[in-house]
Nucleic acid binder design. Structure first.
Lengths: 205, 205
DNA sequence: CAATAAGTGGACACAGTGTCCGCTAATCCA
DNA sequence: TGGATTAGCGGACACTGTGTCCACTTATTG
């Protein structure tokens, strides 16, 4: 069994707090949650995600400020909740999907497949990624911990020297700001995945 | 002659604005500039650089807010001005210093030397780097443009496929937040440079 | 030693934050 | 079904930081 199976993915959700049986969410609470997420999705897509404020989200959702704060401590958490759904799909494919994304292919190929999948995710949901995983908040995300364990396992399997030193280096080019910058400079998604695939050769030694 | 020699390094300094002959800085202005820089250096080193405010810098320097805004639009610019001095030294070595940092060594070795020099810079001035080059502000720095041209030249010389696609990727692991994260996880500066040196092998194809 | 304008800094209007607390209404149970 | 309970709501508040304006100060120049 994979080491990843022991990694719990952290999402900002009041009902995932350990030891707190849901007890069931009230109907109006659920409705407001949906409103908030829908309004936020719209906002993040429309304007620069890093400038979206709590105030704005609350207003757009037609909800009081305190109601919003009840669930999410800041705009990044809202974006993270929205991203989480998409990331979870990839996480499952990495653990149990068909190779080369899932287990069964050589490490270099799996890394390249992972890179390709991640750039796909970034291309589709860049606004959310910029809102959620910018700067050093990125390292504190549950998702980052997952990617990290995955790549760490690949490095170890490939018998790379000092996997712990290399993990962060190999994950660095997946920073949302970097992807944005590359796109801004006119690189196509395909060009970016090609570069990352080339980088994956490192594991072939 | 190196392509780098055509790259102007942008620092936030009112007297570097194109077409504005200095005319000479007034004595009190110079004194306040020094006060601001000294106070800021202290502040950035003391607390989390990303939380230093203009208000705080002005107060610490014993200077009015408007005086501070006259020269620097935000705290990042102050940090950039402080960093600039140190970065300039490295820039000169890259252009005209002895190999492998300067011209004359094979690209892979020059890249490794560059990585080592940069991590040295980060280790010594991480607080300033975090204050100046965090998130996507990093890409807008004059210094980044310089590093980018340097690495681009090395990639081209090494006949790498699609240098434009690879530059940002190779510069990604030098993001200050990343260095901070690696150090936080217990990696030594030496471990980090070793990993980056290993990465430089890519140019050896 | 005046004239000049570069330089200064207090004050202001504004935007966003995070929390408190009285009220509303969904849920539960008799 | 209808009253009690309490989760959930949201307006209001105090606070911090921003960026700009403008009347005052003072270094410089002839």
């Amino acid at each position: 069994m994979d080491a990843l199976s022991t990694c719990s993915v952290i999402a900002y959700d009041p009902f995932m707090v350990i030891g707190q049986p849901p007890a069931r969410e009230r109907a109006d609470a659920a409705r407001n949650r949906a409103r908030v997420l829908a309004a936020a999705e719209e906002l993040f897509a429309t304007k620069d995600a890093r400038q979206v404020t709590m105030d704005e989200i609350a207003r757009a959702a037609g909800v009081g400020r305190a109601t919003l704060y009840r669930r999410y401590p800041d705009p990044a958490s809202v974006a993270a909740a929205l991203l989480d759904e998409h990331e979870r799909v990839l996480q499952e494919q990495l653990m149990g999907g068909p190779p080369p994304l899932g287990p069964g292919a050589p490490p270099a190929e799996r890394l390249a497949a992972f890179y390709t999948a991640m750039t796909g995710l970034l291309e589709r949901h860049l606004h959310l990624a910029l809102g959620a995983e910018t700067g050093d908040a990125r390292f504190r995300t549950g998702a980052y911990g997952f990617w990290r364990l995955h790549v760490l396992a690949l490095l170890t399997e490939a018998a790379a020297p000092d996997p712990n030193g290399l993990v962060e280096v190999l994950l660095a080019p997946l920073a949302p700001e970097l992807y944005q910058e590359q796109r801004r400079r006119g690189l196509s998604p395909h060009q970016i995945t090609a570069s990352l695939t080339w980088l994956s050769r490192l594991l072939n030694t």
